[in-house]
Simulated assay, not measured.
Amino acid sequence: MDNRVALMIDAENVGYKYIDHIIKEISKYGKLVIARFYGDINRLADEWKKKALDYAIKPMHQFNVASGKNSADMEMALDTIEIKYQDKADIFFIVSSDSDFTPLAIRLKEAGAIVIGIGEEKKVTNAFKSACSEFKYFEYFEDEIEEVKVTNKYESLRITIENIILENGTDNKLQLSRLGDILVNQFSDFDPRKYGSSNLTSLVTKLGFNTSTENTTTFVKYENSLTLEQVKKYIVEFLGNSKKGNIGKLKNSMDKEFENFNVKNFGFSKFSALLKNLGYEVNEQTFSVKVKKWKK
């Protein structure tokens, strides 16, 4: 049975651009049953409100009634404790970099809850991080999801399933039931029948994944024949005599050359991270061969 997740967001401390990543992360832990964001709604960007509406995150409006005090933080803490003691959630996502939530995280853990903190690496204190069961940084969420322009809904689903297996499975293999749980948690309207399949097994098979049964448990596996040596060789050939290349053009070229190319097969969340690991210098849009500096 899925864990029940409560999402509590300090909206005045969090940018709307991270919400997609947070929702995706929650889908790995359980079913989102409570989602709220706190702050002076009148001061938030319209984009923030739209993103909250897309994910049905309930606004909890609070005026700052006293100078130097944040009543929204106090309301968020009180509501979170109430949710816990009414036994409405098992896991709490506390989204803020504010160290004032340290006592809240401690109290939740003492009461037996799992507390996942999310904030900015440079702002969050060691005390707040230590008070949480786990802590995640916004900065690394940005690296996690690469922009993939896909218009075919089957191809989009295949990429989604591939990433779920690589992120949550072992040896590119994941329990079929676990895959189904994550898909439903991530997309509330997910149904194999939308894709012309009667069940999840037939759908993943149609999309090119292999399934196997071990001790009555069905697994789905993503097969990848591309090796890191092949990737290295292709990049060298792509550069030719040049010492510098465009990252986007290289990625597009590799997508065409290698069917279903995915950097997560090699343990990386972003293409630029793979290039860095292979010894290239990486800027925003370009990569280059490192030049050895000889000592005089």
Rank of each mutant, 00 (worst) to 15 (best):
G180D: 04
V95G: 03
I81Q: 09
F37L: 08
V291S: 09
V33E: 01
N70Q: 12
D255P: 02
K249W: 12
K109G: 12
S99D: 04
L239G: 00
A111S: 13
K293H: 15
A113C: 03
N42P: 06
N3M: 07
G208F: 07
K256F: 10
S212H: 03
K24L: 11
V204N: 02
N163Y: 02
L207V: 02
T211Q: 01
E144F: 05
N241I: 06
S202C: 05
K69H: 13
I91S: 03
V95H: 05
T218I: 08
E110S: 08
V65S: 13
G39C: 07
E12G: 07
V115W: 08
N163S: 03
S130C: 00
L179F: 01
P192W: 02
L166Q: 03
K84G: 08
N224V: 05
A35M: 04
D181H: 00
A105C: 15
F128N: 06
K249H: 13
A127M: 11
S96K: 06
I235Y: 01
K149N: 11
S130E: 01
K129Q: 14
S97E: 03
F187Y: 08
H61A: 05
F258V: 02
N172K: 15
I34Q: 14
L183I: 00
F209M: 04
E121H: 14
N224T: 05
N210L: 10
K149P: 05
K24W: 10
K296H: 11
L228F: 01
N199H: 09
S202M: 14
N126R: 13
S27W: 13
K206R: 08
A72P: 04
W48S: 04
S197Q: 09
S225M: 09
K251E: 01
D20L: 06
N168D: 04
K31T: 05
T213H: 09
A77I: 05
V33Q: 01
V289N: 07
I22Y: 10
G180F: 04
I116H: 11
T218D: 01
V204I: 04
K243Y: 14
I41Y: 14
D73C: 09
F238K: 09
E155W: 06
P103E: 07
N42H: 14
A45S: 15
T125N: 11
I23Y: 05
M76W: 14
K153P: 04
E167K: 10
S67H: 15
D73Q: 13
G30L: 03
L183W: 02
I81K: 13
V124Y: 14
T216V: 13
I34A: 12
D143P: 03
G119V: 01
E134I: 00
T201P: 00
E259P: 12
A105V: 12
G112H: 09
I145L: 14
L104R: 07
F209T: 05
D46G: 07
A66M: 12
D40C: 12
K290I: 10
L274F: 08
